[in-house]
């Protein structure tokens, strides 16, 4: 009897990515417009308002300091939404995963594809912020053009963190705790809004645990074209989070999808 063969890994991952891409593009206006709108609102709010009171931060204009933080915080939020509320809805309400798993893909293919999609969204959201900031001259045209790649890493990392959290969640409302209890404090204590080096010493280790801290450092180095070898530690941190948490997130979700 002739055995049938299944599609190669690259097809399996890209088909999951493609599914998310098509669903996202279906509402191109409502999905594609806000990433550009957000930095414009930001510019108005900071440039016309807050920026008048706080002129510089950590040796650069405050508006530039915040804008560089925004490059990754926007990637963080889009990816976190996609892989928490989005994932939970696909898992429990729409049952889309059950449909996809009837096709020749495994649970890990499914989630690796989804994580790559979240990375892509992170890239796109960072790129949108970067373009606006370059146009308005807030961020200098330099190695800053590589910022969307840090956006990609941010997207992938927060996809993994969010999938891990979602794997424990039984009721969609519990995800609110993740946003208000974890992501919001992280936004403030990661160096995105103010430098963390002047925080009380007992707080600083916590800041180092936050994943956002590390990508903020990386993206700011790119925007200021000021690199230190310690950035490799930041990159290493991101890789470890992605691999370790990613492994457990997929294992846990597999238990929910495979009887």
């Amino acid at each position: 009897m002739k055995n049938s063969s299944h599609p190669p890994l690259i097809t399996r991952l890209s088909s999951v990515w493609y599914r998310h891409y098509r669903v996202y593009c279906k509402n191109l206006f409502s999905n594609g417009f806000p990433p550009f709108l957000e930095p414009l609102i930001f510019l108005a709010g900071i440039g016309l308002g807050l920026g008048k009171y706080i002129v510089s931060m950590d040796g650069i204009p405050y508006i530039q300091f915040l804008a560089t933080g925004l490059l990754v915080s926007t990637a963080m939020f889009t990816s976190a939404f996609e892989c928490s509320f989005g994932t939970f809805i696909r898992l429990e309400f729409e049952k889309v995963y059950n449909a996809m798993l009837a096709a020749p893909i495994t649970v890990s293919n499914l989630f690796v594809g989804e994580i790559l999609w979240a990375g892509t969204k992170g890239f796109f959201f960072s790129l949108a912020v970067l373009l606006i900031m370059l146009v308005f001259g807030v961020i200098p045209f330099s190695t800053s053009i590589f910022a969307p790649f840090v956006g990609f890493i941010t997207g992938v990392m927060f996809a993994v963190v969010s999938l891990f959290v979602t794997s424990f969640v039984k009721d969609i409302n519990h995800l609110n705790f993740y946003f208000t209890g974890f992501l919001s404090p992280m936004f403030f204590f990661s160096g995105a809004v103010f430098p963390i080096q002047n925080l009380p010493p007992y707080l600083r280790p916590f800041c180092e645990i936050f994943p956002l801290t590390h990508v903020v450092r990386m993206v700011r180095a790119l925007c200021r074209t000021n690199f230190s070898p310690y950035l490799l530690l930041d990159l290493l941190y991101c890789c470890l989070v992605i691999l370790i948490l990613g492994f457990f997130a997929v294992k846990r979700l597999e238990k929910r999808l495979i009887n």
Partner: peptide, 26 residues
């Protein structure tokens, strides 16, 4: 496989629903 529940992608149209699944089979 036709599962018990109609787990289609509700945001997409009929053609797109089939198109995204054709990708899974290469």
């Amino acid at each position: 496989v036709v599962p018990q529940e109609d787990n289609l992608d509700s945001q997409l149209n009929v053609y797109q629903n089939l198109l995204i699944y054709s990708r899974f089979y290469g």
